[in-house]
């Protein structure tokens, strides 16, 4: 029976060492013979910490003492201690071993049982896994950033960076709900540049694009944070002025816009003059939904276009 247990320990797929109370090797299994290149004949009776200096480090000696004198079992991880018993002729760089130290008693004698597992392969897989997780995290971040950009692109005009038609409708619906809840007024302005086609025809599309960007910038500077400026396409812009007290507020903003556009736009050594036609509709007076408010502002704008231009008109039922 004893021989059978002995043979079994030799077959175990990890290092098994039994030490006596003087830390001399009492048992050294076959796995360790192969792993270290040291035979039982070379090791039995030798002091383990002298044979393998890594085992003379304080945590190991503490663990041996704890097992011998306090019957404590101790686990020492490869993550913190790396290696306890150097493998023979091993070219692997970062050998990791777990060590389990347990007290043993036999015939009133105290022994220590050491179990050593080589986890180098496992650690290297964990390292790869961590690397992979990091890469996936990075890729996920990139996807998230790309998504954010795409979401922005889906709702903004590429040339001016202003909200596009879809975002404008969304903002207008929200502004209407808010105005309805708070019993407030809001204005929608439809702005069409006068003479933009001539600029495009005379100086080319590139100049037209620069002009649209400059107009967007100039209009943006005039607005409150709660206002919305959107580009509908071509030279058409839409604006929302929420929380206004009456027609007069909307008129003031429209006048400011016309005044701001009266200054020439300078680029390529050119001095370009532009004006705008603005149509304004009011919630809840003219319409209570976004589509009708925009339509009515559009109609009012065409009234300006068909007359003297460079002006603003409020929608009225006679249009």
């Amino acid at each position: 029976m004893f021989k059978l247990a002995y043979l079994a320990l030799d077959k175990v797929n990890q290092g098994i060492i039994i030490l006596d109370k003087d830390l001399k090797i009492f048992f050294w299994n076959a796995w360790l013979e192969q792993y270290t290149g040291k035979s039982q004949d070379e090791t039995i009776g030798q002091k383990l910490p002298q044979l393998f200096p890594d085992l003379s480090r304080k945590p190991c000696l503490d663990a041996f003492q704890g097992a011998l004198f306090h019957q404590q079992s101790r686990f020492l991880s490869g993550a913190l201690h790396h290696c306890f018993i150097a493998p023979a002729g091993d070219i692997r760089k970062d050998v990791r071993q777990n060590l389990l130290v347990e007290p043993l008693y036999c015939d009133d004698e105290e022994y220590i049982l050491l179990q050593i597992s080589d986890l180098t392969g496992h650690y290297s897989r964990v390292k790869q896994l961590k690397h992979m997780i990091k890469e996936i995290d990075n890729e996920y971040e990139q996807v998230r950033a790309a998504e954010k950009i795409n979401r922005f692109k889906a709702f903004h005009d590429a040339l001016t960076g202003l909200p596009n038609r879809y975002l404008f409708y969304d903002r207008l619906d929200n502004a209407i709900s808010m105005a309805q809840r708070n019993k407030e007024m809001l204005a929608v302005a439809f702005l069409d540049l006068d003479g933009f086609k001539e600029v495009n025809d005379s100086y080319g599309h590139e100049a037209g694009d620069l002009l649209l960007q400059a107009v967007a910038e100039r209009l943006r500077e005039l607005l409150r944070e709660s206002d919305t400026l959107a580009r509908l396409g071509g030279d058409e812009f839409l604006l929302i002025f929420p929380q206004i007290k009456g027609e007069a507020d909307a008129a003031t903003i429209a006048e400011k816009i016309l005044a701001a556009l009266a200054y020439p736009f300078m680029f390529w050594g050119l001095e370009i003059y532009l004006t705008a036609s603005i149509g304004i509709s009011l919630y809840p007076k003219d319409a209570k939904d976004s589509r009708n408010l925009i339509n009515k502002a559009d109609l009012a704008m065409y009234q300006v276009k068909n007359s003297e231009k460079n002006d603003y008109h409020f929608y009225n039922s006679s249009i």
């Binding site: 101790r74 020492l76 991880s77 490869g78 993550a79 496992h122 650690y123 896994l129």
Partner: peptide, 18 residues
């Protein structure tokens, strides 16, 4: 948490609880 993290916790708790 990877296995190696659990090994570290095992050792820490072993030491403290012992």
């Amino acid at each position: 948490f990877l296995d190696t993290d659990f090994d570290v916790l095992k050792e820490i708790s072993n030491l403290i609880l012992n």
